[in-house]
Design a protein around this nucleic acid. Structure first.
Lengths: 257, 257
DNA sequence: CGTGTCTTTGAGGCAACTCAACACTCGTGG
DNA sequence: CCACGAGTGTTGAGTTGCCTCAAAGACACG
């Protein structure tokens, strides 16, 4: 079993590897709410966290002592049932925030999909900063709303889309999110495993794999390797994802009305 | 077709039927953030909205001119696919807020499940008030976080629970929400139809009906009539809902690991 | 070059969906 | 007052498609 390589080095973030000023996500993460001269306040309470692949950052139910901002890598957020079933609620990309819900304990487990780096902030001090800089609080509110939007979209995907549709939707959304600003590339890197995709979409690994194969056979995507997807026909993929009527070919996804 | 009886009477809320002061949801809705003497500001920009059953309040994509607070009745929030499939994202109970996401257009369709009454607030004036009363904005932030929590829970339900588990979970959550403060009653009124429940849980009406029957036959619930459920064995119901290990009887929900 | 993990593909079973029929409630109007 | 029809809920029979189980290929790592 490779899963599980628990906590991690938490270094008090000295000016070691370049400050916030030249951070990759300076303009997209929480800190985007602050001016350059204000960010130092954030920097002062900040700790740096490095995670190896599959390392667990926080576990569901654990006390919520710190909140995090992902600077590089990818995290999966998940809940697990007693019998082992998993539901991945979402993937965190660079710039995303961990700890939107200010409850006493974490409501989701967070694990690294690939080696990742985060900024960690002690909760009490973060609250102080939020009072001092209202824009910081506003930014978190805004990120909460974005997360809610995503969660609502996911409910549609989970509840009403057929497997092939789910995978199509997943690819399009991931493609758009990873582009994030830059023009969308047609090559989408899939950092996560099929098992993660399955647990995100409410399917099994086999069904995910078969769905990829179907999309490839229909010429909508190419699969140079298991962790890279080339989107060949974006329009058709969107149509399959159930985002457009487009009664084109004879493709018969499944459950309709 | 009874569905669709579009918009509604919007009266400029005179002091007709008692002011906010003696409102049912005065202490649970958005307005709970304001003192009695501050609420008048809210009252001044407020309009009253009455909906008959199945009337549509706002449609997905329509410009978001007003936001609402539900005072009585029940609303369903949903998205529909071009081919007619529906996913109900959630149900609004008295005290709940409609318009948490401040986007230009509504992201969800809102329809009345039963005759309902709401307070409506023009968006620009509401924003003014939020600047004047920060606690109002804080309250909305808090309600957004609660909604996010719910949406995350729903993802687990939709993605990983078997039909009977879904229905059990639904009953328990609804029971808790409708109690809202008061001690939870074991009799849960179901205002919505089986079709609504199905579209909420990602099932068909038949499967929902059969799930109710199973739970009844196992003695976990009683069904005095189609729209009232008596919870007989809360613990067992929670166990079925996948919230506890409890390897009791021979019940075999389905998809496990 | 083994070993373990991940991915893909195949075969088969079972559960949820589809289709269909019937029971029930509740207005409406004869 | 009762017949009627529409809407809703339940139950049954059959089918489809996803999951389960199994095995082999692909790939990374030691």
């Amino acid at each position: 079993m490779s899963r599980s390589a628990t906590v991690v080095a938490i270094r008090p973030h000295r000016k070691a590897c370049g400050a916030c000023a030249d951070c990759e996500v300076r303009r997209t993460a929480v800190c985007a709410a602050l001016e350059d001269d204000e960010v130092v306040a954030l920097e002062r309470i900040m700790g740096s966290v490095r995670l190896e692949a599959n390392a667990m950052l926080v576990e569901e139910g654990a006390p919520r002592r710190r909140v995090f901002s992902l600077t590089s890598g990818m995290l999966r957020l998940l809940t697990a049932l007693p019998d082992g079933r998993r539901q991945i609620t979402g993937f965190l990309l660079p710039g995303d925030y961990l700890g939107l819900l200010d409850e006493a304990t974490h409501t989701l487990t967070a694990e690294a999909v690939v080696p990742s780096v985060l900024c960690g902030f002690p909760v009490p001090q973060m609250q102080d900063l939020m009072e001092r800089y209202p824009r910081l609080r506003d930014r978190l509110h805004q990120m909460t709303k974005a997360a809610l939007r995503q969660a609502w979209d996911n409910q549609l995907v989970l509840g009403r889309l057929a497997p092939v549709e789910k995978v199509s939707s997943f690819l399009l959304v991931l493609s758009a999110r990873q582009a994030s600003g830059r023009p969308v590339s047609d090559t989408v890197p899939l950092a996560m495993t099929r098992a993660d995709i399955a647990d995100y979409l409410g399917l099994t690994v086999e069904t995910v794999s078969r769905s990829f194969t179907k999309l490839r056979q229909q010429g909508l995507i190419r699969l140079p390797d298991a962790h890279r997807v080339e989107i060949v026909d974006r329009g058709a993929l969107a149509a399959v994802a159930g985002m457009e009527p487009q009664s084109s070919g004879s493709s018969t996804p499944s459950t309709k009305r």
